[in-house]
């Protein structure tokens, strides 16, 4: 299960859906493994608009990743790019900032290359633990928590 996944998940218990505490789920005892996915900046640029940044920061901190910037990288080109093409902005896009590249590569590693193999995810509202075994999280609820 890739780390990015948890940004799209919430507690499976119906009553928790309306609680802000049910997102993001919190990793406990997570065993991570790295897979090798070719770095593809354009894919990453299209993924970032889908990411809830505050939740990602919580997840990253819990897993010990310290390089996530406090603000989501701004990938929208400045309006001047299309309205008034200025030579300076053209220079910027052809030679990307080295720091940005580093940020993007770290995000690539965290979001797309890091997998959770074993561990659990815990709901901050009801405390239910969802186990992860061999990379597959189990969201089936015991009968007393029902559908």
């Amino acid at each position: 299960m890739k780390i990015l996944t948890v940004n799209f998940l919430t507690c499976a218990v119906k009553a928790c859906k309306t609680s802000p505490l049910s997102f993001p789920l919190h990793f406990r005892d997570a065993e991570l493994e790295q897979s090798d996915i070719g770095y593809n900046p354009s894919f990453l640029r299209n993924i970032l608009p889908r990411v809830d940044w505050e939740a990602l920061k919580v997840t990253a901190t819990e897993l010990g990743f310290t390089t996530v910037p406090s603000e989501k990288p701004n990938l929208d080109p400045a309006p001047s790019n299309t309205d008034l093409p200025a030579p300076e902005t053209a220079m910027e896009t052809s030679e990307p900032d080295v720091a940005d590249e580093k940020v993007m590569r770290d995000l690539h590693t965290l979001l797309l290359e890091t997998e959770v193999r074993e561990g659990k995810m815990v709901c901050g509202n009801c405390g239910h633990e969802y186990k992860i075994k061999e990379g597959i999280a189990n969201f089936l609820l015991p009968s007393h928590l029902g559908r």
Partner: peptide
Amino acid sequence: RRSPSESTGLLLATLGADLASPIRGGM
């Protein structure tokens, strides 16, 4: 020929779940 991340989509996870029960709204 390109790497899989450039030519195909990417699997995030397969989840043991009843229907879409653990999926965040609107995603």
